[in-house]
């Protein structure tokens, strides 16, 4: 279970998160929606443990463990996965090598045996097929020359290989056409499970037609200003964020 209490965070001295309270239980999907600049991506980076994102107040605990002093790789081994809004291209790093290195690093951190090469190959073949990730893509350097849709599919492939228990999807719908959105959403839905929590960050409601959340939060100016069921997303689609932005400004 993820528990965020009164979380304040800043980047380069700019206060971005100003007191977030959030509890996500196993099996739940929470959507976080909000206007541009409300702190959605910052929240995802703070959860993943990016270096220059500093927690100034409040706590993040996951399964009872305080995450404030844990580095990004330790959080990953503890179950955290961030699907990036803009997956980074890394020339010179072969995709397969990267996947295996990441998987084994996490297994090692958890005190498990490394996966053998044949088992790994089999696993990748199975998982990549469902996400329409071609062998040709896997032969390329990590994300290099991938289209927007290919990058997002590759992110979900990583997620399904690493089997995290806490998934944060940062605007996974951005840059996707309708078909790609469906493939990615199906990939995510297959990963829904009673012991896996997800936080889906999005600006638009359309992703939530495919990945149906249990709870929807509205983030504005670094705070959750409204929480509701999935119908809240539809309301936002109709009325926009103006109400929340103005309320804050007033």
């Amino acid at each position: 279970m993820l528990e965020i209490k009164n979380l304040h965070a800043e980047v380069d001295g700019n206060k971005i998160l100003r007191g977030i309270d959030l509890v996500v239980r196993p099996g739940e999907i929470h959507a976080i929606m909000g206007p541009n600049g409300s702190g959605k991506s910052t929240l995802s980076y703070v959860l993943a443990g990016k270096d220059d994102y500093e927690i100034t107040e409040g706590t993040i605990t996951y399964n009872g463990v305080d995450w404030s002093e844990m580095s990004a790789h330790e959080r990953a081994a503890a179950g955290m996965f961030l699907a990036f809004q803009y997956p980074i291209e890394i020339p010179g790093v072969a995709t397969m090598t990267f996947l295996k290195t990441a998987l084994n690093a996490q297994r090692k951190a958890r005190g498990e045996d490394e996966i053998s090469t044949p088992d790994f190959m089999k696993l990748v073949r199975e998982k990549s097929k469902a996400l329409n990730v071609t062998p040709e893509m896997l032969r390329r350097p990590l994300n290099v020359g991938f289209s927007g849709g290919e990058k997002k599919r590759a992110e979900i492939l990583q997620m399904s290989l690493l089997e995290p228990t806490l998934c944060v999807l940062d605007e996974t719908d951005s840059g996707l056409d309708i078909d790609a959105l469906r493939v990615v959403s199906e990939g995510v839905n297959q990963l829904r499970s009673p012991d896996r929590s997800m936080i889906v960050i999005t600006h638009y409601q359309r992703l939530l037609d495919h990945i149906v959340p249990d709870v929807v939060h509205v983030l504005s100016k670094g705070k959750i200003v409204k929480t509701g069921g999935k119908e809240l997303a539809l309301e936002l689609e109709k009325n926009g964020y103006a109400e929340y932005v103005d309320e804050e400004a007033a």
Partner: peptide, 23 residues
Amino acid sequence: DLLFYLTARGIPEAQARKILILA
């Protein structure tokens, strides 16, 4: 940013640095 991408996938920083130098 490259370093963060690798560490966010569970690769310890020292190893991630080596991967990037090698790349």
